[in-house]
Nucleic acid binder design. Structure first.
Length: 420
RNA sequence: GGAAGCGUGCCGGAGCGGCCGAACGGAACAGUCUUGAAAACUGUCGUAGUUAAUAGCUACCGUGGGUUCAAAUCCCACCGCUUCCUCCA
C-alpha cells in the first residue's frame, strides 16, 4: 500500500503516477477525504475513550455510597464509546478500501503507456543464425529424448511435461550455476514452502485481480504459489529487520504453479507456458534510498546468468501501464528464441519500493533508531523456461545441442547432448 | 486421529477483574569508575496511531468476538506450540 504521509504531503505525485499507469486519478482525492474523515472520527472516539477510562478509574477508589451513581454514569459513557468506535472503524474500513486500490507510485522517468510502450535499454549478444533449418525446442526435446510432452499430458493434462535424462539434468545444472552465482553475491539460499495460507497470499498482493491464476486447495484452505516471491516476501512479515550491515538477500528455489486461466490458446506448444515449473528467485530487503541501485544490481546478476548460458537477449524498461500493482519499475530481460524469431521473457525484476513491505509490515531501524519501512525487490535468476532458449540457440545441424561452457561442470563435463 | 497443557515486551518469567503497558531476572545501549577492559554502580530500554510536539491522549499481553462502569486477567471460536499415546515415513 502507498504511504499515507505521501498522500497528505504530496498527493500530486500520486496523481501523476496514476496518470502514467492509465489509472483513475480521482481516487486520490477520494483517499484524501476518507483520510480526513477517519482522523476526525478517530479523535472523537479517543476523546470519549479517555473520558471513559478516567471515569472507570474513579469507580475503583470510590466509597460504597458513591459507586452506584458512578457506575450508572459509566454505562452511559460506555454506550457512547461503543457508537464512536463503530463509526471510527467504519471510517477506517472505507479509507482502507480506497487506499488499497491505489497502485504503487511509479519511479519518475519510466515510460508511460501500456504493454507495447516499453523502451529497450540494451541488446546483448548476436542472434543465433543457422545454415540449416533450425528445430524448435519441442522437436529438439523429442529428438534428444529430454522433454516428454506427450506423457506429461497423459499423466496431468495439457501444459504438463516430463524433463527426462539430460533435460532434467540440464535444468538442475542451470539452477546450480544460478545458486553459485547467488551465493557469491551474498544471497542466502532458501527452499520455500509452495503451499501458503490465504493471509500470506493476500498480503503479497496476489489475490487481487490475478486470483483466478492461482491454484487453491479448498479442503485445506491453502494456495499453491506461482512464485517463491510469495514466501520470500512473507518471510520477514511483521518483523523489524537489521539492515545496518547492508541488504538482506535471499535466493528462493521453488516449484511454481500457475493455472494460466487467461491464456487459453497462447503458447500451447512446448514448455514456454506451463502449469508447473521451477524457478530460482532473487529477493532483497533494503533501505529505500538504496533500492534503485539494488535494482540495477539484480539486473546485472540476471545478465551474468544469461551470458553464462550464452544467450542473446535484450533488456526492456517496462511501461507504467504494464507494471504489477506493487512495482514502481520493472526490468525484463528477453532472450532471442530462434524458432519464433522473437524475444521471449526469461527474467523479470521489480523494484517494489516500500509498497509491498508496508503491506507486510517489514521495517528496519535507521541511524537514529527510528523504525522505517523497508524496500523490497525481486528478480528471476533461472527458470525452466530458459531451457527453450538454451536448446534452440545452441542446436546444431544434426539435432545435437552444445552445452554452454559454464554449465558443463554441473553436467559431469558433458559438452554436447546428441540424439541416440 | 485421541489426551493434556501452554501462548505476556529482544529473551526468560510473574501477574489471573480496577493501583498493569505490565513485577523480577538476563541481554542491549549510555554514563561513572579504570591506562584500557572486566566487575560493580547509575540511568535508558516494546510497537503503532493521533498531534506542531521525543507533551498529552488512544490502541496493542497469539487472532477475532463476547460479558463488564472497568479485561493480560472471565466466557466463546479460531490459529499456533509443547508433551504423551496412535499412525506414517
Amino acid at each position: 500500500m502507498i504511504d499515507l504521509n505521501l498522500l497528505r504531503d504530496n498527493p500530486d505525485a500520486i496523481k501523476a503516477s496514476q496518470r502514467a499507469r492509465g489509472n483513475d486519478e480521482s481516487i486520490v482525492d477520494q483517499a484524501i477525504e476518507a483520510d480526513a474523515t477517519w482522523r476526525r472520527c478517530l479523535q472523537e472516539f479517543e476523546n470519549l475513550r479517555a473520558e471513559q477510562n478516567a471515569a472507570a478509574k474513579l469507580v475503583g477508589s470510590a466509597s460504597k455510597e458513591d459507586r452506584p451513581a458512578l457506575i450508572a454514569a459509566g454505562q452511559v459513557l460506555a454506550d457512547k464509546v461503543k457508537a464512536a468506535l463503530e463509526i471510527a472503524n467504519a471510517a477506517q474500513a472505507s479509507l482502507d478500501a480506497i487506499i488499497w486500490k491505489i497502485e504503487n507510485v511509479v519511479i519518475e522517468g519510466i515510460p508511460a503507456g501500456g504493454e507495447e510502450n516499453f523502451t529497450v535499454i540494451k541488446e546483448v549478444g548476436t542472434k543465433a543464425k543457422f545454415d540449416f533449418e533450425p528445430r524448435d525446442h519441442v522437436a529438439l526435446g523429442e529428438l534428444l529424448d529430454i522433454i516428454d510432452i506427450e506423457r506429461g499430458v497423459k499423466v496431468s493434462g495439457s501444459r504438463f511435461y516430463f524433463l527426462k535424462g539430460w533435460g532434467a539434468r540440464l535444468e538442475i545444472a542451470m539452477m546450480n550455476l544460478a545458486l553459485d552465482l547467488a551465493a557469491k553475491n551474498n544471497f542466502t539460499a532458501l527452499i520455500t514452502p509452495t503451499l501458503v495460507r490465504p493471509e500470506v497470499m493476500a498480503g503479497t498482493g496476489f489475490l487481487g485481480e490475478h486470483a483466478d491464476e492461482i491454484y487453491y486447495l479448498p479442503a485445506d484452505d491453502l494456495y499453491l504459489t506461482g512464485t517463491s516471491e510469495v514466501a520470500l516476501a512473507g518471510y520477514h512479515r511483521d518483523e523489524i529487520i537489521d539492515l545496518s550491515d547492508g541488504p538482506l538477500r535471499y535466493a528462493g528455489w521453488s516449484t511454481c504453479y500457475r493455472r494460466e486461466a487467461g491464456s487459453a490458446g497462447r503458447d500451447t506448444r512446448g514448455i514456454l507456458r506451463v502449469h508447473q515449473f521451477n524457478k530460482l528467485e532473487m529477493f532483497s530487503y533494503i533501505k529505500p534510498e538504496d533500492a534503485e541501485q539494488e535494482h540495477l544490481n539484480l539486473l546485472a546478476f540476471e545478465e551474468a546468468m544469461l551470458q553464462a548460458c550464452e544467450l542473446s537477449y535484450r533488456v526492456i524498461d517496462t511501461a507504467a501501464g504494464d507494471l504489477g500493482s506493487s512495482a514502481a519499475r520493472k526490468y525484463d530481460s528477453e532472450a532471442w528464441v530462434p524458432s519464433q524469431q522473437t524475444y521471449r521473457e526469461l527474467t523479470s525484476s521489480s523494484n517494489c519500493t516500500t509498497y509491498q513491505a508496508r503491506r507486510l509490515n517489514v521495517r528496519y531501524r535507521d541511524e537514529n533508531g527510528k523504525t522505517q519501512t523497508a524496500a523490497t525487490l525481486n528478480g528471476t535468476l533461472a527458470t525452466t523456461r530458459w531451457l527453450v532458449a538454451i536448446l534452440e540457440t545452441h542446436q546444431q545441424a544434426d539435432g545435437s545441442v552444445r552445452i554452454p561452457a559454464a554449465l558443463r561442470p554441473y553436467l559431469g563435463g558433458t559438452e554436447v547432448i546428441s540424439p541416440k
